[in-house]
Write a protein that binds this DNA or RNA. Structure first.
Lengths: 387, 387
DNA sequence: TTGAGTTACTTCTACGCTGCAAGTAACTCC
DNA sequence: GGAGTTACTTGCAGCGTAGAAGTAACTCAA
């Protein structure tokens, strides 16, 4: 009966593990679940019984699998039973989504921040949350931003907001909204969403590269996000991708930011031919065959391909997901991307799968919601969130 | 009483987990072990009791930790209770070590292979093992080679030996020596040794780069070796480190192999000044200030630094271990290495710790022994070896 | 010297979680 | 309509765990 107040945190560990497996990989029959978890069939029956009784999980579909023997009964988590809000912060705006347990977006709103001070940001976030959620009770709130958050609560670095010292954003938003709130780096949150519910659902290893105003990078290995003090803050942005490329603000020639950031691409096209004012125009011009735009965009695509190759060579991921608001670059310059990838990847090695996942601001906000979902489903979990 | 015949495989899972923790991180007091494993003190007492009774673990030292309260009693695994042999194969020779449970080398031998056919290699390995082990009973044998082994048994690729189809080297050596045998890629095996007992002991994440005839690469993330079909077979060897560098055999300019392989460095010095015939001479000349050797070695050091930076940026490891028979390069060109590292690493990010670990052929063989040790201590283990 | 405080370890119990074995259920194929 | 096959359930024995209560061995201060 979907009692939100009891919720997943009250489940016993093994039962919760089964529920998470169903959430991430479902629908699954009991036998498939047993194989996935490495358990006996009897144990799975026992674990699943209280989930069915509580209405968190339901049998779904007829389960026709065509084979011989008794047909299986696929089970699935009832995603609609819980609501989460996700908020992505930029220097000036907030973007919020309302999502269910599988991070399906049910509503979205956005608006300017009232200001950059912690109090103004908290008030803006609370406002966005109440606007997007209405009076639906929330199981959790996630907030993501370009910066770092310790323990998913304390913001320790937020260059775009200009915060000097640590701010307990998680605690403040929890107090303001009444819903348990977690804070995360925006790229890491997007990587979490990609991992659990997105283009890399079910993948044990993958990398995420976001292209847009900046270049972001996230890595999942052994089914777990790789976190560190430096994760998501641009270690990848200044990797050299083209020794003859343009300069970035730090004086690096041909680094990822200089080659791929949407502002840099726009500037390069503007310098070459004039008459452009937006990144989207540059991609359109390149599609239409404008020689300057084609050259700039192709150079960028080749650089992106080389970046993908470097990532795959050094992390051994079979898949690299491209996202971010500027990711159309990868479609427009797909040939150049493939060429750059081929140039730096051993042809004898397994080919790298490149997935292009469209990314707008609501995708970033959805990432924030997934951080909240993970925190809700695996509190202080042994594997997922922390450690 | 160190009964080798019962051994670790007969331990119950939780007890074995405690024993592995002591082996890898010991000596540890019971309370420290409880903290590490996330268990209560009572559970640890229960787990440790049979290990003490069986003599696999002993109390060690007085346990003075200076603080207040009852002093702790550090426990440690009795490493001398088991013997393992490790054999590293090259195209023409085998190198074998005898090691205890902590991979301390007790003896070493080497010799030419009788030939490259599977039968000749197996006979050579068995010969080396019996020479190095004498009549000591072996708990396990590890064999490592440049190539791939499926399931730690079946060699599926061995370019240096010219084997075409898969060869059940593990099964053949098991039959020939009477000791359970595992097969592994040589770089991965060295990474295992570095992880459990070497320069990265206790590290949750690190990367290993080997420099020598070829360039090797291994990665540990989340306390587990990253394995893949392509691991260890040279994905890293053809990364571009210097756009103006020399060519490798595949036509890559300035790739890791072209810049760092000992043969390439020797050739570059020989072309420049003549009068050298070995890699070691080149390093000596560079130390002595010979301008050609200094330039070649410094370029290589800078390239190695850039490689370390790329690895750290993309994998987020805090530590990179350098090893291999040509690793002296890193000491001779340490300034250039630091410069290359600084150039490609964000100064705001955590600094990368570079550990130089001397590596001869016996280190490679020790790696093979560690593969056997891991297989012995964590058979079909949930985390260590497979999956 | 004595007792309070502190940390390390042990013992006992209740219970969660597991595999295993022996069922039952629902299907296909012949 | 039975044999074969796969999915699932039920009951049981035993491992593994936390928690509470107790013991041990030390430091420190009065």
């Amino acid at each position: 009966m979907l009692n939100g107040s009891t919720g997943w945190p009250s489940l016993t560990p093994a039962t919760r593990t089964a529920a998470v497996e169903l959430l991430r990989h479902g629908p699954l029959s009991r036998s498939a679940l047993a194989r996935r978890l490495g358990l006996s069939a009897g144990s799975v029956t026992r674990l699943v019984t209280p989930l069915l009784a509580g209405g968190l999980v339901v049998p779904v579909g007829p389960g026709r699998d065509g084979g011989i023997g008794r047909p299986s009964t696929p089970l699935d988590v009832v995603a609609a039973g819980h609501r989460f809000a996700g908020v992505k912060l930029t220097a000036s705006h907030g973007y919020a989504v309302l999502a269910d347990l599988r991070s399906t977006v049910l509503a979205k709103v956005d608006g300017p921040l009232r200001g950059k001070s912690p109090a103004e940001v908290v008030a803006s976030v609370a406002d966005l949350v109440s606007r997007v959620a209405g009076d639906a009770p929330l199981a959790g709130v996630g907030v993501s931003l370009g910066g770092r958050a310790a323990d998913h609560r304390i913001v320790t670095a937020a260059p775009y907001l200009g915060w000097a010292g640590p701010v307990d954003l998680g605690g403040l938003v929890t107090a303001a909204t009444g819903a348990p709130t977690v804070v995360d780096n925006d790229v890491l949150a997007l990587a979490r969403a990609t991992h659990w519910f997105g283009a890399a659902r079910g993948a044990d290893r993958f990398a995420l590269v976001t292209v847009g105003v900046g270049i972001g990078y996230g890595l999942v290995v052994h089914d777990r996000l790789v976190d560190s003090d430096d994760a998501g803050v641009g270690l990848v942005a200044h990797l050299c991708l083209d020794p003859l490329g343009p300069l970035c603000a730090r004086g690096h020639r041909g680094c990822a930011e200089a080659m791929l950031a949407s502002g840099k691409i726009r500037d390069a096209v503007a310098v070459g031919r004039g008459g452009v004012s937006t990144y989207a125009e540059c991609l359109d011009l390149a599609s239409a065959g404008d020689p300057v735009a084609v050259r700039v965009v192709d150079d960028a695509g080749r650089a992106l391909g080389r970046l993908v190759a470097m990532i795959a060579n050094l992390t051994m991921v079979p898949t690299v997901v491209l996202s971010g608001d500027g990711v159309e670059l990868a479609s427009v310059a797909s040939d150049a991307l493939a060429a750059g990838l081929a140039a730096d990847r051993d042809p004898a090695a397994d080919p790298v799968r490149v997935e292009i996942h469209p990314g707008g601001f609501d995708e970033w906000a959805r990432g924030a919601a997934v951080t909240a979902i993970q925190s809700y489903t695996t509190p202080r979990g042994s594997a997922m969130m922390h450690r």
